[in-house]
Design a protein around this nucleic acid. Structure first.
Length: 601
RNA sequence: GGCCUGGUAGUUCAGCUGGUUAGAACGCUAGCCUGUCACGCUAGAGGUCGUGGGUUCGAUCCCCAUCCAGGUCGCCA
């Protein structure tokens, strides 16, 4: 039965007890983490969000009724305890606990709420599947490991707000209920009751609104903004997520925005986990990142760089290689240095063969390997190559005994995707990544356009309002794929932590962009006429950036799972296992919205 | 939408290419215990083997379908 607090007031958090309080009476409240009943002596570990404090009930020091009540306490019961803080003596000390030198000798106990037996024991790394933990998320959130991450997130938000306020940025909210934009990710739609058959869309990002705020003259804006994308989930992707969104006016040099972003990130890392980044975070062009690491978000904490051998094999006579090159692609390799060193190779033959299947998931047709052994090379492709060619490849790759060269020949996109993924896989297998290291860099000079096979036209890599490099403007007509954008991504440990761009403020350039993307005036009007109209009324040069808050917290707390940093996350099929959302709704609600359900898949 | 992995006590798992009573640990219940902190000791309860169908004398085990969960490719301007 639940008891009421009455006159009891909490005096201390469980772990926030000081030496000076020893001998004094205190009142603590929290959840029962563990009970240990020794007969006429009962220990209860009491937990709140600061940690655990041991409570002692001694049969000789407390009245019978209270002792009996203490005997009835079960895990996760909510308790209020009044007692005297005592120093522990001798062997009773527990140096493994933050509060292991003290304990509370209880005088009074109230069981504020008794708890049902939890479906899993509430402790760090609960022995339960993720599905079960998410169904009872409120219990998992009681674990110190998760509480730490959620509290870290709160701290980061507070640092961000202070930083922006100190730097003259205004926090301005933008709508959740907006207009659907058919480009980009799928929208979450919200039906309108007042306008039957019409829908709002939840924002994929506040992008257009924040640009309008620049048109309005707010000059420096930020927002910690929730964004929604109706796409499939990943270990680091949720359907709703949070961006640290900022935009500033009267800048047209990328460095001006990057500088602000850098100062913010430096402050966040320093004030939360004490990590200080070098004064000048290095820049790497998109082209260099792709060529060396096969990714626009390279993990540069380890080597295994990609090398181009197209020039060495272009006339080698081996059709797989020459064909790929003739079709405009390339032949590149990663030297898995020492992976086949005998007698204890990092990867067995079988494991190396399995990597062939691995690269196929990235559309590569296969993986050619050359292993250098004492007695010579072992290779599936050596017989197609002349000795000179083979030697040239080994030399290019700086191959030594014990190395395995892993080669992909295909169109560049596929070569980079597969080898980029392969080097991450190899690093993981060989434990090449120092988990305590933070590696941060900017990727710059992204291409403005890319060719979409699906649409059969050029599309914007970033979005159609991204400003191209001024010196590349003449290329728009002659070689659009060579046009570089004033766009930049901040990459930390191979994760895209944030990205942004300078936006187009010139009508002429904007029209040129639309023209190049093949947008007719009609289409422009229909898709974002309201936005283009606004740009015509006096738009200052502006640019901005958005960080992924969830991914930042993941980096700070060293987790690979985005669910660890969100209080109530969703699972792979975008449902919430706790509330069982989404759910069917009552017919009346559907009628109000003029919605009829025609079919279910 | 494709591919891969998993689903057996409250929980995490084991279960021999098919056989008589489906096990372990933790948790839970009861009893004993004054220095535990993964307390200890004794006893006990607890199972539609995800669901539906098939093969078989017989299915937790093999096959098919389906549902659920995880990872991943596509997708994420």
């Amino acid at each position: 039965m639940s008891e009421f607090l009455g006159q009891m007031k909490r005096t201390n958090y469980c772990t926030e007890v000081s030496e000076e309080q020893i001998g004094q009476e205190i009142v603590v409240m929290g959840w029962t983490a563990k009970t240990r009943n020794l007969g006429s002596l009962i220990f209860i570990d009491l937990r709140d969000r600061t940690g655990i404090l041991q409570i002692k009930f001694d049969e000789n020091l407390v009245d019978k009724e209270t002792f009996a009540k203490a005997e009835s306490v079960r895990n996760e019961d909510v308790l209020a305890v009044r007692g005297v803080l005592r120093a522990r003596e001798g062997a009773a000390k527990n140096p493994r606990m933050k509060t292991g030198m003290v304990e509370v000798v209880a005088k009074e106990l109230k069981i504020l709420a008794d708890a049902d037996i939890p479906p899993f024991v509430v402790e760090n790394n609960p022995n339960a599947s993720e599905a079960l933990r998410l169904k009872y998320r409120y219990l998992e959130l009681r674990t110190p490991a998760l509480q730490e991450k959620i509290m870290l997130r709160s701290k980061v938000c507070s640092i961000i707000r202070n930083f922006f306020a100190d730097n003259g940025f205004l926090e301005i909210e933008t709508p959740f209920l907006g207009r659907s934009t058919p480009e980009g990710a799928r929208d979450y739609l919200v039906p309108s009751r007042v306008h039957p058959g019409e829908f709002y869309a939840l924002p994929q990002s506040p992008q257009l609104y924040k640009q309008l705020l620049m048109v309005s003259g707010f000059d420096k804006y930020y927002q910690i903004a929730r964004c929604f994308r109706d796409e499939d989930l990943r270990a680091n992707r949720q359907p709703e997520f949070t961006q640290i969104d900022m935009e500033m006016s009267f800048v047209d040099d990328e460095e001006d925005v990057m500088n602000v972003a850098e100062r913010l990130i430096r402050k966040v890392f320093k004030e939360t986990i004490g990590v200080e980044f070098e004064q000048n975070i290095r820049r790497m062009t998109y082209k260099e990142a792709m060529t060396r690491f096969g990714s626009d978000k390279p993990d540069t904490r380890f080597g295994l760089e990609i090398q181009d051998i197209s020039d060495l094999v272009k006339d080698c006579g081996f059709g797989v290689f020459t064909g790929a090159i003739a079709a405009g692609g390339s032949v590149r390799l990663v030297n898995a240095k020492g992976f086949s060193r005998q007698p204890n190779p990092i990867l067995s033959r079988k494991e190396i063969d399995a990597l062939g299947e691995f690269v196929k998931t990235y559309k590569a047709k296969g993986l050619a390997t050359i292993t250098v052994k004492e007695e010579g090379v072992q290779s599936s492709v050596a017989k197609f190559l002349s000795e000179d060619t083979l030697n040239a490849i080994l030399k290019r790759a700086n191959a030594e005994v014990g190395d395995t060269l892993m080669i992909v020949a295909d169109k560049n996109e596929t070569v980079f995707a597969s080898l980029g993924a392969l080097r991450l896989k190899l690093a993981e297998k060989a434990h090449l990544i120092d988990e305590n290291k933070y590696d941060i860099l900017w990727i710059t000079e992204f291409p403005q356009f890319e060719y979409s096979e699906e649409e059969g036209r050029l599309v914007a890599v970033h979005h159609p309002f991204t400003m191209p490099k001024v010196e590349d403007l003449p290329l728009i007509d002659t070689d659009p794929l060579a046009v570089r954008a004033k766009a930049y991504d901040l990459v930390i440990n191979g994760q895209e932590a944030g990205g942004g761009s300078i936006r187009i403020h010139s009508k002429e350039v904007q029209n040129k962009m639309f023209e190049t993307l093949g947008f007719t005036d009609e289409k422009i009007q229909k898709m974002f006429g309201w936005f283009v109209t606004a740009l015509n009324y006096g738009t200052p040069p502006h640019g901005g950036l958005a960080f992924g808050l969830d991914r930042l917290i993941m980096l700070l707390s060293k987790t690979d799972n985005i669910k660890d940093v969100i209080a109530f996350p969703k699972v792979q099929n975008a449902s919430d296992l706790m509330t069982e959302a989404p759910s069917e709704v009552e017919d009346k609600q559907l009628r109000d919205l003029s919605i009829g359900i025609t079919a279910k898949n």
